[in-house]
Amino acid sequence: MTFKPESSTPLAIALGRAHERFAQTGQDLKDFDIQISERTRENGEDENGENTIGIAFVAKLEPGKKGLGNANRLGRSVLYIASKTSGEILREAGSR
């Protein structure tokens, strides 16, 4: 994924805010992979039609286990959707 230089500040703000919210879940960051995606009008925008950034904290699998990332005891994945222009977290979605 490539972000234009003018969007690097909102991305840094969004990462910081997503990390703060994730820390409030009480889960251990070492048990997660972080995935960042640029969400365009085709696959995700906010209420105002603005393109967004997806920041996902994806639970890793337990050693020796197969399946989905949430099919384990290491944690619960969380996706934060942030504004690409301000870095504000617009919404979040957890998985079970």
Rank of each mutant, 00 (worst) to 15 (best):
L90D: 00
Q35V: 15
K65G: 09
E20R: 05
N70M: 07
Q24Y: 00
E92G: 13
L61K: 07
E62M: 09
E92S: 14
G69D: 10
S7Q: 13
D31W: 06
E92L: 15
G69K: 09
G64S: 10
K30C: 06
I53W: 00
I53G: 06
I55D: 04
A12F: 11
Q35L: 15
E62I: 04
A56R: 08
H19K: 15
L61I: 03
T9R: 14
S8V: 09
Q35W: 02
Q24I: 01
K66G: 11
N70D: 15
E45R: 05
A93C: 09
S8M: 14
I36W: 00
A12W: 04
R39V: 02
V58K: 06
G69I: 10
T25I: 10
K4P: 02
Q27F: 03
I13V: 15
L15A: 11
L90F: 00
P63Q: 07
S95H: 10
V58A: 04
E38Y: 08
I81L: 08
M1F: 01
E50T: 12
R39S: 10
E62W: 02
K60H: 02
E88N: 10
A93R: 14
E50K: 06
I36Q: 15
L68M: 15
A14K: 07
F57Q: 07
R41H: 10
T40N: 12
G67K: 07
G64P: 08
E20H: 04
A23R: 09
G94W: 03
F3P: 08
G49K: 04
E42M: 04
K4Q: 08
G26R: 01
M1E: 05
A56E: 05
E42P: 00
S95T: 13
L15N: 09
E6T: 07
E62C: 05
S95N: 12
N51W: 03
Q24E: 14
I89M: 05
F32P: 12
K60C: 04
L29T: 03
I55Y: 02
G64C: 09
N51G: 07
S95Y: 13
G67T: 05
F3R: 09
E42A: 06
Q24H: 03
A23P: 01
E50H: 05
K65H: 15
G44V: 03
N48G: 08
G94D: 07
R73V: 05
G69W: 11
T40V: 12
F3A: 08
